[in-house]
Design a protein around this nucleic acid. Structure first.
Length: 271
DNA sequence: CTTTTGACCTGACAGC
DNA sequence: TGCTGTCAGGTCAAAA
């Protein structure tokens, strides 16, 4: 479900309600996520104050004293605020309750998400340590992408979705950014020069920024922390538009599978 | 080292 | 109605 814009939208919605708030309770209804939910979370978290809610790639980091709660939404996860009297539904696996009467609730039907406590710096956690530069910060540069791809013969779209190269770019936004940069998703990453990488970095930022401003993309089930849908899906140039006319040149958008993921591009605009 | 494949899991939908 | 097959926004480990 969520790529960087959806996670960031969630973070922005939750932050005002959880930052400075004290955890009063934790409910784990199903520990069987992608990795088992950390044991004894209620004991670890109760009485702690959330100092900050941050995002790194698609991970949410609830910083709390000498450790952090790391939450990932996987493919189908959503995290939103409910009142203390809201009964849990079928796939509501995890609750973080606060003294202000509000609960942050995780619903994740496919259970590819994560809820992990990490003592110390969460950025040093095994799953986060090796992640590449954040695309919305100055850390991502054309030079970085250029240098890192000199030995990569694989398709640029697969490279973009490699979290060690760039953080947070998933299938939808890889497709959309490549369209905007006019780069064919199949093009071997090593055959792209510095100038084109500069355009690509620019278009990745532009796409992600617009998506965040639109509240993310709601395809099946994504909603923000208040339960509202995003509307960036109405502004896709290529994703899910196979057979439809390119919005720039009217050539039919082509859809195929690349690296086990649905891929869409305009064969005329993208070379 | 890079690249590909399979695995994890449920729900929605198309087609018969 | 109900069955079967396919697909879905992520990511990792293992194999090639």
């Amino acid at each position: 479900m969520p790529e960087l814009p959806e996670v960031e939208t969630t973070r922005r919605g939750l932050a005002p309600h959880v930052c400075g708030a004290t955890v009063t309770g934790v409910v784990v209804r199903n520990r069987a996520l992608r990795q088992p939910v950390t044991r004894n979370l209620a004991r670890i978290l109760s009485g702690r104050r959330i100092d900050a809610l941050e995002r790194r790639a698609k991970y949410l980091l609830f910083r709390a004293g000498d450790g952090s709660l790391i939450v990932h939404l996987g493919m189908s996860g959503r995290l939103w605020l409910v009142n203390a009297n809201t009964p849990p539904a079928r796939h509501d696996h995890f609750d973080l309750a606060f003294g202000n009467g509000r609960i942050v609730r995780l619903r994740d039907p496919r259970r590819f998400g994560l809820v992990l406590w990490h003592r110390g710096d969460p950025l040093m956690h095994k799953l986060l340590r090796e992640i590449g530069p954040e695309p919305l910060s100055a850390a991502l540069t054309a030079e970085w992408l250029y240098r890192q791809t000199r030995t990569r013969s694989g398709a640029i779209k697969n490279a973009l979705m490699d979290s060690h190269l760039v953080a947070g770019v998933g299938n939808i936004y890889a497709n959309e950014a490549l369209f905007r940069a006019r780069i064919n998703p199949k093009l071997p990453a090593r055959r792209i020069g510095l100038a084109r990488y500069a355009v690509l970095v620019d278009k990745i930022r532009e796409t992600l920024t617009e998506a965040i401003e639109a509240g993310g993309s709601s395809l099946r089930d994504y909603v923000n922390s208040a339960g509202e849908a995003g509307f960036f899906q109405n502004r896709f140039f290529v994703y899910g538009r196979g057979g439809d006319a390119c919005l720039t040149c009217t050539t039919p958008i082509r859809g195929f599978v690349l690296g086990q993921r649905a891929t869409f591009y305009c064969p005329r605009c993208q070379r």
